[in-house]
Computed example of a mutant assay.
Amino acid sequence: MESTASGIVIVVDDDPYVLESVAMLLSVGGFEVHPFSNGFEALDELRRCPPDVVLTDVNMPKITGIELLEKIHEIDRDIPVILMTAYAELEMAVSAIKKGAFDFIIKPFKPPYLIHSVEKGANYKRLVLIEKNYKMELERTVMQRTRELADALARMKSMSRETIERLTAAAELRDEDTGKHIMRIGMYAKRISRALNLPEEFVETIGIASAMHDVGKIGTPDSILLKPGPLTREEFEIMKSHTIIGGKILAGSTHEVLQMAASIAVTHHERWDGTGYPAGLKREEVPIEGRIVMLADQYDALRSWRVYKPPFDHQKTMKIILEGDGRTLPEHFDPALLKAFQEVEQDFQDIFASQQDDPVHRDEAAAGIPVGAQ
């Protein structure tokens, strides 16, 4: 008798005649048969060499077929167990099925039915193994692709950060501001964003995006950018255009950091009371990132040396922002930001103190020379 399936079958029956006849039928059917008259010996063999199918008699003296079924499934639930019995008791069949029996054969059985039942069990075990292997391979593939994606995202993030740093550096070379100023702005912006309980993703993004707030100064003439005295009305109008230029440089990107950077570049000189530029936006018309960077930039500008003013200490800077000095007024700032700013003012002072320029840069700035210029 030919068989379309093959595999290892453990046969258990305490009747030597049945055991021998079943083993012979299955061997002719193309299976490798391991016959046992004792269920415990069959279990030892199963642990040593897991079969594709177990075929066992129900009524045996030392261990019943149902008890053997339970022990087999304690070892490996995927091994199909076929039960044989000479008594077609419905209650026993139901119990066997509930305990996970793959099939139930009534003695005396017809050889084709026996072969067919064992073939079904072997095919089932093979499909289970294929599914397991597929899942393992899928998990390995997913893990590998996840690692590759993470690596790619890390490289993209690194490249994006480098691009931002290089773009910022280009603006720094033409301005009195230095790299430390840029770093401080990012740290101020992150600190006040956290004080406002903004999402951590926003906090991290503004910490990077704020570095490009003045990138539009690339398009501002040196005669205006580095002028040691007050600007004329015409010169100030040209200076104000750095917000529009910065927005155009950064506009159109799908990258969230550059999108926020574009928003900051355009709006970081807008004021809460509508007296800012370039659009005269007021209140919530100014995006939150623009309001935050405006305050951070104002604090750092007051603390830093400028061609038109000496550096102020923390106390004087706080007094100017909170009370005004004619040039800077409290109405310029979002009241919620001012409240948060007051709560973290010590952090601002600590950031400024810890992020100072090296002596060479300080000397260059004091001389009105753009940092890095010869």
Rank of each mutant, 00 (worst) to 15 (best):
L138R: 05
E165G: 00
T205H: 03
S158D: 11
K157R: 15
E165Y: 01
L149I: 12
G179A: 07
P199A: 09
M136Q: 11
T205P: 02
T163Q: 08
R191K: 08
L198A: 02
A122K: 00
K190H: 04
Y134L: 01
V142M: 14
E148K: 08
R166W: 04
E165T: 05
L153K: 12
T146G: 08
A171D: 00
L173V: 09
E131G: 04
R161V: 10
D175A: 10
K190G: 04
R174M: 13
L173I: 11
Y134A: 00
V203K: 02
M159V: 10
P199K: 13
R166P: 03
T168I: 11
M187C: 12
R126H: 14
L149Q: 05
A189N: 08
M156L: 15
N133G: 02
R161L: 07
N123F: 10
V128A: 13
T205C: 09
R166H: 05
G121L: 07
K125V: 14
G121N: 02
A150R: 13
M136Y: 05
L153W: 04
M187D: 07
S117C: 13
A169V: 11
T146N: 09
L198F: 09
Q144H: 12
E172D: 05
E162F: 08
R191M: 03
T163Y: 11
M136D: 04
A170P: 08
F202Y: 10
S117D: 03
